[in-house]
């Protein structure tokens, strides 16, 4: 069974004036269908306003579909009795590291989720320690979150989600407010959790971050316009550029070289691949 099933989801933001009359309707997600298998690492790409965050919030039952259905582990998000179960199953990490930490100490914050679920005290302690170790923040468990760096705060937030033992974690642009080092930490943590069997849905607009994903979905104007492995997606450089997405430098260089007649395979993701491809060319020429 698929862990997340999105069936022709449409969501409209309705703007109202002071009297409550409808002023305008913005369709944020437009007839989107997507299914995620357990253990998959899915990346959703798109520039601002492409509807990717709106889509993500449906999976966690924070938003209700205007049309269509969202099923998490077979539970429909329209059924409000199931909301707690859905949120327990699909955790979410948000963009701003400051605005999602509730506790005054790192470990108190990580305990917040399990406390809400009514987990007994001893088990909360065990889960908090385990989650903090998994994200490499155990040494900071007694620290004040305010004094941590952005990347560290995001890792605490991730620990806060994993302590609830979710099957799936949705990352809603977790790196948008971080420096490069923090960004790398967070993505590495996400990949590590995925290796441990947690389904990851990563929403981002940094192309570099999606190279490790099993599947990439590119969204534009509320629709999924491209879908495929990172290699397939990155071999379509002109289309990505048309969607105002910046392609990783290596991929772009490889594509340009290919346009100039070099025999380089499409969809180069890493420097090592490009070097190997160029060496192969040199050998063939010589």
């Amino acid at each position: 069974m698929d862990i997340v099933e999105i069936n022709s989801l449409t969501f409209d933001y309705i703007r109202r004036d002071e009297e409550g009359n409808v002023e305008g309707i913005t369709t944020a997600v437009d007839d989107l269908t997507l299914s995620v298998k357990p253990g998959e690492f899915i990346a959703v790409l798109g520039h601002n306003g492409s509807g990717k965050s709106t889509m993500a919030r449906h999976i966690n039952a924070m938003l209700m579909p205007t049309e269509g259905n969202v099923l998490v582990k077979g539970m429909n998000t329209r059924n409000s009795e199931k909301h707690l179960d859905i949120r327990k199953c699909a955790g979410m990490v948000f963009q701003n590291p400051d605005n999602q930490i509730v506790g005054q100490l790192v470990e108190e914050d990580v305990a917040f989720g399990p406390e809400n679920l009514g987990v007994p005290a001893d088990e909360i302690r065990a889960r908090v320690d385990e989650s903090l170790k998994a994200v490499g923040m155990y040494a900071y468990r007694k620290n004040d979150p305010v004094k941590l760096s952005g990347g560290q705060k995001q890792r605490v937030s991730i620990a806060g989600v994993t302590a609830m033992h979710p099957d799936c974690i949705i990352f809603d642009e977790p790196t948008a407010m971080l420096d490069p080092a923090g960004r790398k930490d967070v993505i590495e943590t996400a990949k590590k959790l995925n290796r441990e069997g947690i389904t990851i849905i990563l929403i981002t607009h940094y192309m570099e971050e999606v190279t490790g994903a099993d599947r990439v979905i590119v969204m534009n104007k509320g629709k999924a316009v491209m879908e495929g492995t990172p290699k397939e997606i990155f071999s379509r450089v002109p289309e990505l550029k048309a969607l105002r997405l910046t392609v990783p430098q290596v991929t772009e260089l490889a594509w340009e070289l290919k346009q100039r007649g070099l025999d380089i395979p499409a969809g180069i993701l890493t420097e090592a691949e490009l070097i190997a491809a160029i060496r192969g060319n040199a050998r063939n020429d010589g």
């Binding site: 924070m62 605005n99 609830m164």
Partner: peptide, 23 residues
């Protein structure tokens, strides 16, 4: 910030004091 925090709390299954335990 309040809006963001409320959403983050809800996403982490906060539903008031009912059935809540403490570490």
């Amino acid at each position: 910030r309040a809006g963001d925090l409320a959403m983050a709390m809800e996403a982490r299954c906060y539903h008031g004091g009912e059935g809540r335990t403490q570490m």
